[in-house]
């Protein structure tokens, strides 16, 4: 749309802005006198304007009392906006709920026929139908508690409903302000912002941030703020790093074993972490086999001599038992498949 600028006799024409531009024109010799230069310019401008007018007057026009009216195409020269695009307001809580439930707005008449007075009255507002304030008498029921003013309860209930509605309204406004879509006439008092333009509230500086900045400023002298005058009520800057602690030089009764504990802890950690590397599997298997062989030889010689360390020793022929198990399993699966 913007790209297709009209070209005529080498002029660029933007009818939407009634503008013509001649990028080719050059003066043969710029006249010394300004008047002559202006005359030449105006003469050339006349040609340009004539070119615009040719386009303009050829547009379909409708005759009006004041003159022919022509529909102008949108301008092709792009110019910036003065304010950002308005943002759509987020749906209120009720609107979200209504959409979920499929509730639709139905138009209601503004005036309703009041049967008591047999006249038309407003639905809401001053002098409305079924106004609670108009009731002179409320009939007592059996369930009513004695000593409670029914008029007062009605009034307080009404007040509560109004307050609830106001709370909901404020909530919705707050949500709208978060996306910057507050109605233009509403201003959040906390932010007291301009109404025009964007309505993004400035970020509040937190207490921590303020403290950080104050602390930095206080300690940015050569002495690190040590010899500075303290303001009334100013606290010393917070020390947020850990203090270095040293172990006692002499072994005492309570703290004495601390150093050993510490090194123990570190060693344990290291061992636990690298235990898979420390444990050499192949070597262990070798050792185990050698031990077994030795034991078998001994047993062949001694023939069932029990010793105290018998329990700790590994049971005989681990291979066989393993193979037995596997064969059993295999047989069971065979039978099943058959």
């Amino acid at each position: 749309m913007a790209e297709q600028q009209l070209q005529q006799d080498g002029y660029q024409i933007d009818i939407g802005n009634l503008m013509a531009y001649d990028p080719q024109h050059q003066f043969q010799s710029i006249p010394d006198k300004r008047e002559d230069l202006v005359k030449e310019c105006i003469a050339h401008a006349t040609k340009l304007i004539q070119a615009v007018a040719d386009n303009l007057f050829s547009l379909p026009s409708t005759e009006d009392a004041s003159g022919p009216i022509v529909p102008l195409p949108p301008p092709t020269t792009k110019l910036p906006r003065e304010k950002p695009l308005p943002k759509p307001a987020p749906p209120t809580k009720w609107e979200v709920f209504a959409k979920k439930k499929g509730i639709q707005n139905r138009k209601k008449d503004k005036v309703v026929f009041d049967e008591q007075t047999s006249s038309w009255k407003r639905r809401y507002g001053y002098d409305r139908v079924n106004d609670d304030n108009d009731l002179p008498i409320i009939e007592a029921k059996m369930t009513d508690e004695p000593g409670v003013d029914p008029f007062a309860t009605r009034r307080s209930e009404k007040k509560q409903r109004v307050e609830k509605q106001e709370k909901n309204r404020l909530h919705n406004l707050k949500e709208a302000s978060k996306v910057g879509a507050l109605p233009s006439h509403v201003q959040l008092a906390a932010t007291s912002l301009p109404i025009t333009g964007t309505q993004a509230p400035p970020r509040k500086v937190s207490k921590d941030e303020l403290q950080n900045v104050a602390g930095m400023a206080a300690t940015s002298t050569a002495s690190g703020g040590k010899f500075d005058k303290k303001l009334a009520g100013e606290k010393p800057p917070k020390h947020d790093k850990k203090y270095r602690k040293f172990l006692p030089v002499v072994e005492g009764s309570g703290m004495g074993s601390l150093e050993r504990q510490q090194s123990d802890k570190i060693l344990n950690k290291l061992m636990a972490k690298n235990s898979h590397e420390i444990f050499n599997v192949s070597k262990a298997v070798d050792m185990y086999n050698v031990k077994n062989d030795k034991k078998r030889k001994n047993q062949q010689g001694k023939n069932k001599s029990f010793s105290t360390s018998n329990k700790l020793k590994v049971k005989k022929s681990p291979y066989k038992s393993a193979s037995k198990g596997s064969s059993k399993k295999g047989s069971s699966s065979k039978s099943k498949s058959k």
Partner: peptide, 16 residues
């Protein structure tokens, strides 16, 4: 152009 062009209009009276 922005300073002097005034309002962008859809309909223009040629007599004006």
């Amino acid at each position: 152009l922005d300073l002097f062009r005034g309002q962008v209009v859809k309909n223009l009276n040629l007599a004006g």
